[in-house]
Design a binder for these strands. Structure first.
Lengths: 261, 261
DNA sequence: TCAATAGTGTCTATTAGACAGTATACA
DNA sequence: TGTATACTGTCTAATAGACACTATTGA
């Protein structure tokens, strides 16, 4: 390793000699380390209900119990936490480009019986037309489960019930001030479908004309010229979401569901 | 260990025999593990400016560079991530009960030259009257640094500039729809002081009567009967924050800083 | 023609924001 | 009495929400 002249300006990181020495002699096992996982709260609209993807654990601990999909970090493969989340998501759903957002990180000595553990939870929204795994099929180890309240019927492994509740609450909260709901719909959708999605998740009726006005004013939705949804009624204009994925912010001037008291 | 009768109902976790065996033979070093840290973005109002606490690193890597306060998890001591954050906070500021909220978690193979590393970042707000470390004193290893834009003047270690920027943005965003700003003020404050705090952080003038009306309507502020701030002007009513720490949500019916376009 | 849903218009109550006015302390 | 800041009132424009109306298709 070449030595550096004494009074050259201190290089910015990486790389003065002293630090190089430190790094080559650094003991990676100096501190005990926790187990680090990435878990996913994956939402989709299936059969007119908000559902979440669960997997049945095939290994200990909590063997046989339902859990959120996830797994340990792969240090030689993952370039970031989001990378790891995307990898897990793809393995579970084959969806390549969903809406993905970091939810929160949970850690403690008892949440996993094996070890002090940390899990970084993400939440993802899958467009309705990209859901491949059908609810109610005989897949043994994965299924979609409807969300009721802020949870699901089966008793989840680890602290996954808590994580799921946080995910549901985050989804509902963001829906009141962002356009995040579009990521549950296909590329082209009608405003009625969009409103229905909001109503389904928020469990609340919204006023049609207010909803439409705010969608218009947001500037994030583009009518698809000439493309209409047909039925035994007046045809509906199809729209596409025009914003960036994470730009759902800035949305409604007032919340679309604000109530008087 | 007592054996369990074969057809007793399966106990809920923890504890069937098979899983116990699994756990006692489990190899904790089966997966390579990342280094896990907790870092803090600690804000305070000092000399009429938003400032953030920095420490100068005494050890490699990035020895001598300024960084956010933080440190490695202590597995035998910390009962949760928030616990670890509170411990670090107390070590740095001696403040026992600040506003503390998880910000985000960052991880990757290159953000720390030692190892694949993960840091769970928290952000904290310190009341003005509990700031002990003065800006500009000769403390060698810690100082308050004014926030300009979304960062600070010195070049921070690791990816701390990014974390700080996320913290500043989170603070500004929450200020537009919550009362979070009160946690930067002492227990008793006037509405003018509160408004001034908002203006300082948002870098924007707010209308007095609108601001007061919304403070009143929020129901989170209680006038302190008979307690006034005196000066060479009409005395100002002192108020206290009445909500729970995290209840700042639900606050303004409209954002207090929403602009027309 | 009917049923069904798409889409628009009108009215009202609320309120943010602008701005000016009044109140009350100390000097 | 002057000055500084606290606090309140008034006006206007914007808009959410309620609700009713019109539009347009297939059956």
């Amino acid at each position: 390793m070449p030595s550096m002249p004494k009074n050259s300006p201190a290089p910015t990181h990486p790389g003065n000699d002293e630090e190089s020495t430190f790094l080559t002699t650094y003991d990676r096992e100096r501190y005990p380390k926790p187990l680090v996982m990435v878990d996913l709260v994956i939402f989709a609209l299936i059969e007119d209900a908000l559902q979440v993807l669960l997997i049945q654990r095939g290994e200990h601990p909590f063997k046989g119990r339902w859990a959120l999909p996830g797994g340990a970090l792969r240090l030689n493969q993952d370039r970031s936490l989001e990378d790891a989340a995307r990898r897990e998501l793809q393995e579970e759903t084959s969806v390549t480009s969903p809406y993905l957002e970091q939810l929160a990180t949970y850690g403690g000595p008892d949440r996993d019986p094996r070890d002090w553990s940390v899990t970084v939870a993400y939440f993802a929204l899958i467009p309705r037309d990209q859901v491949t795994l059908e609810a109610g099929t005989d897949a043994q180890d994965a299924r979609w489960e409807p969300v009721t309240g802020t949870g699901v019927e089966p008793d989840l492994a680890f602290d996954h019930a808590r994580i799921l509740a946080d995910g549901v609450n985050r989804l509902r909260a963001k829906l009141t001030y962002t356009a995040i709901g579009v990521h549950l719909l296909p590329e082209a959708f009608t405003l009625s479908e969009l409103q229905h999605t909001f109503e389904l998740i928020l469990q609340e009726k919204l006023d049609k004309s207010s909803f439409r006005q705010r969608v218009r004013q947001s500037g994030f939705f583009r009518p698809l010229a000439g493309r209409m949804r047909k039925g035994s009624n007046r045809p509906a204009q199809l729209y596409a979401f025009d914003g960036r994925r994470d730009e759902a912010h800035l949305f409604f001037p007032r919340s679309p569901v604000r109530k008087r008291d």
